[in-house]
Design a protein around this nucleic acid. Sequence first.
DNA 1: TGCACCCATAACCTGGAGGCATGGACGTCG
DNA 2: CGACGTCCATGCCTCCAGGTTATGGGTGCA
Lengths: 305, 305
Amino acid sequence: MDVDTRLLRYFAVVAEEGSLTRAAELLYVSQPALTKQIRRLEAGLGVDLFTRSRTGMALTEPGRALAERVPALLSGWETALRETRGAASRAARVLRVGFLASAANEATQPIIAEFARRRPGWRAEMRQASWSNPSAGLADGDVDIALVRLPFPGQEALRLLPLFSEPRRVALAASHPLAARETIAFRELWDEPFVAAPAETGRWREYWLAADERDGHPVRVGAVTEHPDDWLTAIANGYGIALAPESAARFYTRPGVVYRPVTGVGPSRVAVAWDPADDDNPVVRDFVRCCRDRHPDRPGGPDGT
Amino acid sequence: MDVDTRLLRYFAVVAEEGSLTRAAELLYVSQPALTKQIRRLEAGLGVDLFTRSRTGMALTEPGRALAERVPALLSGWETALRETRGAASRAARVLRVGFLASAANEATQPIIAEFARRRPGWRAEMRQASWSNPSAGLADGDVDIALVRLPFPGQEALRLLPLFSEPRRVALAASHPLAARETIAFRELWDEPFVAAPAETGRWREYWLAADERDGHPVRVGAVTEHPDDWLTAIANGYGIALAPESAARFYTRPGVVYRPVTGVGPSRVAVAWDPADDDNPVVRDFVRCCRDRHPDRPGGPDGT
DNA sequence: TGCACCCATAACCTGGAGGCATGGACGTCG
DNA sequence: CGACGTCCATGCCTCCAGGTTATGGGTGCA
């Protein structure tokens, strides 16, 4: 009997949630579609996987047996997928470089240029990640190397080479009362609503909300965004304010959004990160060397191309 | 990205064969269908898996990476499938008993009856296997225990308890010249065409062609059959003759087919077989005990129900 | 030059997977 | 006790994926 990994994912979620309705929401499909799929799976196996009741779906004994195996199958496929794509980019002499919007800013261009010089024939494929993905795809194996901002969850499992740090500023709507100020102390912002990263980014989100610099004062979240565009829009619309690296003031400008120096929060550190499995990968090593050689020692001064 | 195991199987065969045309034949689909599927896989992965040429399909480097992983994924799924079905039959108190057409014949009924006595609440689900499957589904995990005829390929990996042996006879068309004879010496049959089992059954097929009792004389195969019905038809139509256990003369009769004693070939041995992993399975042990207790010591004498 | 062998493409058909609306069982609460 | 809420199942519709046959287009070989 053949199955689709999608079907296995569906099954796994239903098994986990114990409810078709809830699982359907998580999976972004309609409940009848899930009903049909699960029944199809059961029919194909010739086995009842769940006992239905008003309280939901409970795994049967054979259902439990299947549920034990499915995660390994799915992650096996994910691994195969990653390996295949990794092999493809190696074969094509492409280094997949993930970066967070606003990660390296001015530093990026010289690093890429240096890499092109050091590795003729190779191409660095730049992939911008959304803020829901603070490792910029490295944790998922989608890229070979990444330019990131520390700290982020999962960084312990990666190699990290810090490149530089830069002060953080606060971005706020031009119409905001504090926008008139030259400099702002962070504690003045404790009660402001913030534009935050998605919740699943954990420590990363905390860091940009400066949760550690609030003396336990709770955070107000006015909006959640994943991309610079939404972020700027949310700030311009006054949904909230946000901390941002100094270089964002040069890279992400928009009428109605201003950046102001802020005291009382630490700087942001930029690093290059890679998978320990690539420690011996000469292309990755070269890229890291490019980063070390080429990161601007003075984070100011955009240098064009 | 989601995939179907079917797609992975397709890919594996194309990778193995190095040719869409040949793979399509093996998979019983049309060549354009395979073309489309493989291209779809490549598109989904965003990776070229093969280089096409007039000589066929050669794996690329990433294609090779995928091909290395796929067998493990497929067998992982097969395992999950078996475990789930096994759990289902345990939960339903069903012992899946595989048997070859004509394996135990008269012995089967008393064994089942004894099992019902010894394990009230349990049910023995009898599954007749075709002759392309001499382990009666045990090798594939489709059944928990099997009544088989020795020898067959793969028996070394199983537990076997021989139950009894019975002489072999020859089945031939009533119109066959030798049908008039009371007894036939096997060497008289060396040049006769035989009705054989499918080639993939290896040693099992050999045994029923009595390849060892021919002094190297080559076998003529007149027809290949998988089921008793085809087998009887082939013999009645004169496509060939065949060896059969003595009990087949009682169980598989048809106008135009006669059975005659034959000298010069060894007897056939019936055994009960199970997976070593089930050595401690009390239900399997019970069934084995039923076999030991209940097999007819005198293979003759049909005893009805 | 014509053929044989591959793979790709085109046109068409069917079934499966999705969506929406609704039904039916059952507990809960006013 | 009846109205409602919460599940999962069903019916109907649409659309796409996967299959088929027929055909095209390279390329080596006789």
